[in-house]
Design a protein around this nucleic acid. Structure first.
Length: 277
DNA sequence: ACCTCGACCTGCAAGC
DNA sequence: TGCTTGCAGGTCGAGG
């Protein structure tokens, strides 16, 4: 479950479970995920105190008092679960091992945090103290979509000269960090923009961002905020406005359109050809 | 420099 | 029931 809203939900769970605790033991149950674990992974984590858990795009950052930062990406199928000692007593699912558990962190509080990832597209890495929190993966990321600094002018500039479609541009983490396949479709529907439209067509004209860029920024922020709020209440209803709704009626008021599915860059895009231009 | 496509993995649902 | 196919919320590198 890995776009910005899901990663943010995981971040909150991990921050509550890990902040202030010491890592007493790290168990690697295999040598790699998408890439090998970095040299010294276990040694540099064991014994360290966790400052907090933050997020950048789809990356989770577990910051240690030593200055090191553990970087984690969920890929397509990665997930974390945290089991406290009381969970164990309940004889519930607790921290019992499951298929595809690849990394286990035991904390001084007794809480056990487990990383599970069937497809192993996830990544874990360490950011060195010297690097002042720089890492190739993080350096390449575009703006955080929910920051005020991400506005129509910024998006328009990032799209300037891009020959790819708007949908493909939104998946490019250098343009905006954290949007993935679901929320790209959702944001474009919110903005009434066709996913097939060329990204460069929303770019700046005569120094001012076009209305389309304003709508797209608004759409991105709106769908991400709403998704984050929904997770918080563990409220499962609602689902999506277009994603996985092929053949069903468009939900925009008074729009008579039907949601279509097309393939772009090898991935499914859902949109309403009637109201999205 | 930009763009497209396949590769990397496992699991699940649908169709025969 | 068992097989095959296609699809899945993400990158990343090769090659045009």
């Amino acid at each position: 479950m890995p776009e910005l809203p899901e990663v943010e939900a995981v971040r909150r769970i991990l921050d509550r479970a890990m902040r202030g605790s010491r890592i007493t033991r790290v168990e690697l149950r295999r040598a790699n995920l998408r890439r090998p674990f970095p040299a010294g992974f276990v040694n540099r984590l064991t014994g360290q105190v966790i400052e907090d858990v933050t997020r950048r795009g789809k990356y989770l950052l577990v910051r240690l008092r030593s200055g090191d930062t553990l970087l984690a990406h969920l890929g397509m199928s990665g997930s974390f679960r945290a089991a406290s000692p009381s969970d164990e007593a309940d004889a519930g699912s607790g921290s019992k091992a499951r298929a595809h558990d690849h990394v286990v962190f035991e904390l001084s509080s007794g809480t056990v945090v487990t990383f599970n990832d069937p497809r192993r597209f996830g990544v874990m890495d360490l950011v060195a103290v010297e690097g002042a929190a720089t890492h190739d993966a993080l350096d390449a990321l575009g703006p955080e979509p929910l920051n005020a600094a991400f506005d129509a002018a910024v998006l328009a500039r990032a799209c300037a000269g891009k020959r790819v479609s708007l949908k493909v541009a939104l998946l490019d983490q250098r343009i905006v960090a954290g949007v993935g396949n679901i929320y790209a479709s959702e944001a474009l529907h919110h903005a009434r923009l066709s996913p097939r439209r060329r990204a460069s067509t929303i770019a700046t004209r005569a120094g001012a961002p076009r209305d389309a860029a304003v709508r797209l920024v608004t759409g991105i922020k709106a769908v991400l905020r709403k998704a984050i709020a929904r997770k918080e209440q563990a409220y499962r209803g609602g689902r999506f406005r277009v994603y996985e709704r092929e053949g069903q009626p468009c939900l925009r008021p008074r729009c008579p359109g039907t949601i279509r599915r097309i393939t772009q860059a090898g991935r499914s895009t859902y949109y309403c050809p009637t109201c999205q231009r």
